[in-house]
Amino acid sequence: MKTKFILISLIVAALLAGVNACKSEENPVIATCRLSNTSDQLVESTGQLTDELKRTFAYNKETLVSIAEKSKNLDATFTVTFTDSRITSATNGQDVITLTYGSATMPASSTFSRGGKVMSTFAMEYNTSGRMTKITENRQVLPTNSLTKQRVYTFSYDTNGNLTNERAQFTLNDGSATQQETEYVFDTRPSPYKRFAELPLLTVVALSQTVETRPGRFWQINTPLSLKAYNLTATGSRSNLRESSTFTPVFDTDNKLTSQDQNALLYQSSVPDPVTKKNKQTFIYQCD
């Protein structure tokens, strides 16, 4: 009789534990953090910070509703429109970005228009993991003081999905072209863009504003520790070093990148010694 009572007690305890486990799974308490602000500031020789670029991301719960970019010569806020749970456009006054998907889940092309006139078109390619491998911008109207009619960025990844190499080709009005290449070394902790859900739109917005020079940063999974940038020859081989940068990242207790100092050496063929430049970048998150 005693053995039977013990057996029944064990069965009841197991059932209660199962019920509680189900309740816990049905109502998990998980904090979700989304990138809300980034800033990139030049550190002057006096220690003063000078704004170079700020980006702001606004959300309605988990849904992105706008992307804003602000710099000395730029102040734009793109309001996002969804159709069937996919972003189809982003609008800033007379500036409109449209995304086209076809049969894919990721946008295959995009158009940037101003006042109804097409300024640039973009074509995007991805690997089987959904990471962007190429974006081509063809400019219908050249930005002020620019002779570049086409920009092509290609991205290479390692087996863990980290963007290790970024190539850029710029074709000018006269048909001549220049090429550059940037290689990255990474930390083991995540990039602030790792869980940003709308990377294709962010990439197009950034390039359409002509401020961005390395859109590959948005597709990095882990935080970079250093980069080296080179000019390339016409055959695609490396020639001279353009830039060597190291990053000193600071993470919070949840391994979110909160800030980093970038110390850069900028090389010019006509100058024997590199120019030093220091930037401070900050990242702020909105957490539920």
Results as ranks from 00 to 15, higher is better:
I135E: 01
F78L: 07
V96C: 02
A123F: 06
R131N: 15
S176I: 07
P274T: 08
A17D: 10
K4G: 13
Y101A: 02
D158V: 13
E26R: 15
T178N: 11
S270R: 11
L142T: 04
S71E: 00
F247C: 03
F218W: 12
F283V: 01
Q180P: 00
T144Q: 14
D75E: 12
T213L: 09
Q180G: 12
G130Y: 11
N73T: 12
N173V: 15
A31W: 12
I11W: 13
E183F: 08
T91K: 02
S208T: 01
R139Q: 11
T81V: 08
Q286M: 13
S244K: 11
Q286I: 13
E183L: 10
R238I: 03
P215K: 06
L172Y: 12
I67L: 08
Y285R: 00
E183D: 08
K256G: 01
N160T: 15
Q94P: 10
L53D: 00
F247W: 03
Q169P: 03
P224L: 08
G130V: 07
A68W: 06
C22A: 14
F196N: 01
R151D: 09
T210C: 04
G93I: 04
M124C: 03
G216D: 05
S109R: 03
E243Q: 11
N160I: 15
S113P: 00
A90M: 04
Q268P: 02
L15M: 15
S208Y: 06
I6Q: 12
S208L: 03
R195T: 15
E243N: 09
A13R: 09
D84F: 10
C287D: 07
L265T: 12
T3I: 15
T121K: 05
D252S: 06
K70N: 13
N145D: 13
